[in-house]
Design a protein around this nucleic acid. Structure first.
Length: 266
DNA sequence: CCTATAGCCTGACGGC
DNA sequence: TGCCGTCAGGCTATAG
């Protein structure tokens, strides 16, 4: 599930529930999802510390620890956070749980183990070593930087948008939404798009991600005419008013949803 | 350098 | 009901 807007929602959830509370214990239920350090090392860094801040970069969430360093949270396809008061409310598939002095707990839950938790001293180095580009909503990603980064690539525009090393945060669902709103077929080659079209795409990308992030990635709150809520409810009629049907195609190894009427293939 | 592909995990769903 | 294949909002390593 979690792309930039969803992870922004998790950040706000963490901020409003879990900051500035001493962690009494950290329980790692699944050692295999711990990256960068050993499970024991992660635990030592967490216990006795407080989460004092949080920072999102692309689909990653980092929580600054009062003893120094940062907890890394990455959600893969099925991860999320759950704050609960009672140990009996522990969700299934909890992989890491932080129990605070108050008795409340913050749980990192992930069915498929494609996500990771970990620890790093230096977030910037972690971002560099994982080859992540700038966050898609970063001020540094302006129109010119966007055009320069994508211009002339050979692959599909959908694949390029999902490439985390160019710009971080866009995944399968939001690449579909952005391309739908930009009127571009996901199979289009990037090098067939001129600078003006890339500039327009930039504007759509920022607006879509900002709007979705403002709603914490909850499709029920998205504006009229968006594609994501339709897909989620299993309704394949085009929300663009063309009366057409949303089609599916495999693009860059992922399933793309698009409207052949409203989106032009370049 | 760039792009496409297979593999990693688990659970839900549809068809037989 | 039970089994099987397919698919899923991500990332990495590898091959071309």
């Amino acid at each position: 599930m979690p792309e930039l807007p969803d992870v922004q929602g998790f950040k706000e959830y963490l901020d409003s529930t879990s900051l500035h509370q001493p962690i009494e214990d950290a329980t790692i239920f699944d050692a295999s999802i711990v990256e960068e350090v050993s499970p024991g090392t992660l635990r030592r860094h967490l216990e006795g510390a407080e989460l004092e801040s949080s920072h999102r970069h692309g689909k990653y969430l980092f929580a600054g620890l009062s003893k120094g360093g940062n907890l890394i949270l990455h959600f893969g396809m099925t991860g999320f956070l759950k704050y609960h008061e009672d140990a009996s409310d522990e969700p299934e598939h909890t992989r890491l749980s932080l129990r605070f002095e108050s008795g409340s707990q913050l749980s990192y839950v992930n069915v498929r183990r494609l996500g990771q938790v970990g620890y790093t001293d230096n977030v910037d180095e972690f971002i560099k070593s994982h080859k992540l580009g700038p966050d898609a909503l970063d001020d540094g990603v302006d129109r010119d930087a966007f055009i320069k980064a994508y211009k002339g690539r050979r692959g599909s525009i959908k694949g390029a948008l999902m490439n985390q090393s160019i710009v971080a945060g866009i995944g399968n669902v939001y690449s579909d939404e952005i391309l739908f709103q930009a009127g571009i077929d996901p199979r289009s080659k990037v090098n067939k798009l001129d600078e003006e079209m890339l500039g327009d795409l930039y504007g759509v990308m920022r607006r879509v991600l900002r709007t979705a992030a403002n709603h914490g990635g909850n499709p029920d709150e998205f504006p009229e005419g968006w594609l994501v809520p339709r897909m989620q409810s299993g309704d394949d009629s085009c929300p663009g008013g063309c009366k057409g049907t949303i089609e599916k195609a495999t693009v860059s190894g992922r399933s793309a949803h698009y409207c052949p009427e409203c989106q032009k293939r370049y």
